[in-house]
Amino acid sequence: MPRPVQRRFILDALMAAPLLTLGGLAQAQGRPMTIVVGSTAGGSTDTLARVLGKVLGEQLGRSVVIDNKPGANGTIADGLVARAAPDGNTLLMAAMAFTVNPLIYKKLPYDPLDSFTPLTMVARLPNLLVARKDAPFNTAAELIAYAKAHPGKLNFAVAGLGSSIHLATEDFKLRTGTTMLAVPYKGTSAALTDLMAGAVDLLFVGSASAMSHVQAGSVKAIGVTSKAPIAQLPNVPPLSATVPGFESSAWFGLMGPSKMDPRLTETLYQAIKACLSHPDMVAKLDAEAAIRVSYTPAEFSQFIRDEMTRLRDLVTRANIKFES
């Protein structure tokens, strides 16, 4: 068999071989896998990527490194992966900003739909709607009734323009037909501190960030943005029980560059899916009050398309203006 044909045959066989063999091939070439994160170290996206990277490295039998490329709401990291070779050695830990950025920036250095190969969504992170502890309402129905009886009196702390928290706030107001003032904050910590001090009335916040404060009675939980209650706060009802169709969660998923071989895409998907059952990943997701997802590549691709359409419609209806 001529050498080029023989080499191609071997590579094809390895691509279809078990996961450890594929990992061993890349390891033998001296190339670690890199997961690029569009935020600084220590945040939810970064810490989730680090636990997943460790477990995935064990699954593939190779080293996995995390490369933090913060800036421009994640578009620097997105662009780096979009330009990478489609060999599975460079992946992106994408988050909700990925589907928001096309609405914020008039021009991106990549096409969010055509420049990437979606592998799988890893997890969704529901938000909690919390109120100051002395708020004159305890349920979503009571909140809506109070807001309608006192238009403009209540205010919402909004942490992060274009974040899941910001968009959940606008969606909630639209669906309930209420008028509440948005008070912008640079981050969740400051917003939560002011809520506990009674300086603001309401806040959508990541479940993990608010759980201890809810349990301590420092803030009042009105509802959760997932379709069902979360295990950590089983007595907090989903807001959709009162506001039909309302759901809002941050999400995290892995993508590669476009034009990845379908067999490589499937191999990586199966490896990542297996990682989600690993005790370290289960513990991490539980600590974040996150919901394990493991969409197939096709399901994740469709989710991204649907989410971009949904957010574009929400931004238009709520008349949200981004400065960029």
Rank of each mutant, 00 (worst) to 15 (best):
M1C: 11
M15R: 14
L20S: 09
L22W: 09
A28E: 11
T34S: 09
V36D: 01
G38E: 08
D46P: 02
V51C: 11
G53E: 02
V55A: 00
N68M: 07
G74Q: 06
I76A: 10
A77I: 11
R83T: 10
A84D: 09
P86M: 07
P102F: 10
K106E: 15
L119K: 02
L129M: 03
V130I: 13
F137T: 07
T139C: 04
L143G: 00
L154G: 02
G160Y: 03
S163Q: 04
S163Y: 05
H166E: 06
T169R: 02
E170S: 11
L174M: 13
Y185G: 03
M196R: 15
A199N: 14
L202K: 02
S209I: 01
G223W: 00
V224S: 01
A228K: 15
I230P: 00
P237D: 05
S248M: 15
A250R: 01
P257W: 01
K259N: 15
R263F: 07
L264T: 08
A271V: 04
C275Q: 00
L276V: 01
K284F: 00
D286K: 15
E288I: 05
A290H: 02
F300P: 00
S301L: 06
I304H: 03
R310K: 14
R317E: 10
K321V: 15
